[in-house]
Nucleic acid binder design. Sequence first.
DNA 1: TTGTACGCGTTATCAG
DNA 2: CTGATAACGCGTACAA
Lengths: 359, 359
Amino acid sequence: MRGAAKAEVGKTKSSPNLPQSSDALPTIRDVARVAGVSLGTASKALNGQGKLRLETRAKVQAVAQQLGFRPNDLAQSLQRKRTFTVGLISTDSYGRFSMPLLEGIEHALGSEQISVFLCNAADDSTLEQQHVNSLLAKRVDGIIVTSRRTDPRTPLNVAGAKLPVIYAYARVEDSKATCLLPDDFQGGRLATEHLIKLGRKRIAHVTGPERFEAVRQRREAWRKVLDEKGLEVPLSFALSGAWSEAWGHEAVQRLLSKKTKPDAIFCGSDQIARGVADALRECGVRVPEDIALVGYDNWEIIAVATRPSLTTVDMNIRELGRRAALQLLSLIDGQRHQGIQHLPCSLVVRESCGTKKGG
Amino acid sequence: MRGAAKAEVGKTKSSPNLPQSSDALPTIRDVARVAGVSLGTASKALNGQGKLRLETRAKVQAVAQQLGFRPNDLAQSLQRKRTFTVGLISTDSYGRFSMPLLEGIEHALGSEQISVFLCNAADDSTLEQQHVNSLLAKRVDGIIVTSRRTDPRTPLNVAGAKLPVIYAYARVEDSKATCLLPDDFQGGRLATEHLIKLGRKRIAHVTGPERFEAVRQRREAWRKVLDEKGLEVPLSFALSGAWSEAWGHEAVQRLLSKKTKPDAIFCGSDQIARGVADALRECGVRVPEDIALVGYDNWEIIAVATRPSLTTVDMNIRELGRRAALQLLSLIDGQRHQGIQHLPCSLVVRESCGTKKGG
DNA sequence: TTGTACGCGTTATCAG
DNA sequence: CTGATAACGCGTACAA
């Protein structure tokens, strides 16, 4: 923090009607003076308040325009007790999911004319608290917390300040908190049902590490759908590993070494799916003819480049961000809809399942 | 914009020494009252200014602590004429390059306790101007403009406000502007020289669309280095196309159909390199034994997953963001180092070139 | 219809 | 050492 440099400009005393070109930004006081009206009148003219003669209003507005007057949000906020500003805390550093989330949030908020403070906490709770303190000091109207895990995190500590908080693609144990999450169960169901609808019966599932809630949810859905349709698959059809292409390769080796071979594979991520696709091709297995493939994430850079391009589950993260922002706004306006909300995923159909039954 | 709800709490009149638990945040006035000192004394005590009795200072601080007092940055900024806040305008939506840039900027600024307003202009100049206006109204201390192109864009219009502006991974024609860019020429040189050092002599270059300044720079470097070393390659060794894996595939077909075949390929992006690597493998060409490969971007998700993993040029975007932020800070502090600055790239060695000469 | 005066929360100056 | 008082820039009752 540096000491303030003294500013000696913009004195009220200066001769009236002089269109001063000091380097200090013009205040409403300057506008009033130049327009030859009082301060209060200028304010009303600029804000469309009260009853003024059209002539006066026009005059003031013209002067404001000409002077390049720009109301000082700081002063306004101080008065209004509302800053039209929210904080955005991202717990993980900016990655695959943060970006669309950011986009959705920023878009929704931006079109409401409210600004966003960006804070990257990088999984460091000390840093996070620092950011929160800073946001509180700046009197933000609310805070959005984002992550990229659906597993619970510790609640944000706003130190008693009754400030609206929303968790977007993040979850906390606190049942009074408002959390928005993609519906992993529905996503898993979507993928599996799509494959079944296409006539596949021996559907394997290659996914990420067990410790992810998302992994467990999607797998549960896969299992449930198979059950519902009376389709039985060996235990070896459920494979947990890493979120990587390499794991996709390895999983294919394992699957093809068994007696019962799958006619479809539902992958827990597009990266895994790409590894699977490459491995299958190298083993001479045709996709989708011999084995159909569904990915997860709709990470275009991967899904489109995979051969064949991936049919995959899209978590609609951008929309999730948008909704989160909108809900924060209504929280700020006093409403209180709370609890955990799951947003549906959708399926993006490309080539890895074929297009028709028996594909 | 909504009308303000009237707040009737925190009156100064209320009985002294009552640790009021109204829901309005405590002001320094409350602290003073409860601590039994005057407003000015409280301020000095909290800011470590002036000369106070240790006892008094401690008392005030204790009360502040207990009341959960948090100075209102709005009021402070209004007075200090400095908000400790900067705007970050990203012209492209958040993508591959924006995120490390963001990270670097936010990190540098965050550790200086200054907050960042995020603005996504999405290549829409109207929207951008709106954001700028908003930032000006919020009295930010400076603005960073980011892009993901090294090609010139139109300068930011700050409407005469003498506000520090820095372009990070973005460029404008204005020679008085401060722009930070990766050194694409040096990057191209780095890649080519690495290949030559490893004994390669027939180095092809497969890159993106001609219209990118970056493409032209890198290719120029490649050409120059070959010249310097007295290595001649056919014209067909320079291939411009798209920034995609598919183009990598296609380029390989073209290269291998000629009489003179390359013993190395310098690719304009990791995506292209991956396409090239896949295509080569499928043609039975070994990497790096038969053909060595260098990528560009060090996009880990791709570079590591490629088989073999990619040796590639890293533009050090995070560092670029960090430097941009730091320079903005010193601009704000009154210094003025301007002009275009190029930051060096570095080479990340993995497996696609082999490790030793003739590798 | 227009002008005056006060408050928003803080800091800084200048008496006491 | 401590306490009034005046800014900072703006909105808004209330008086003229």
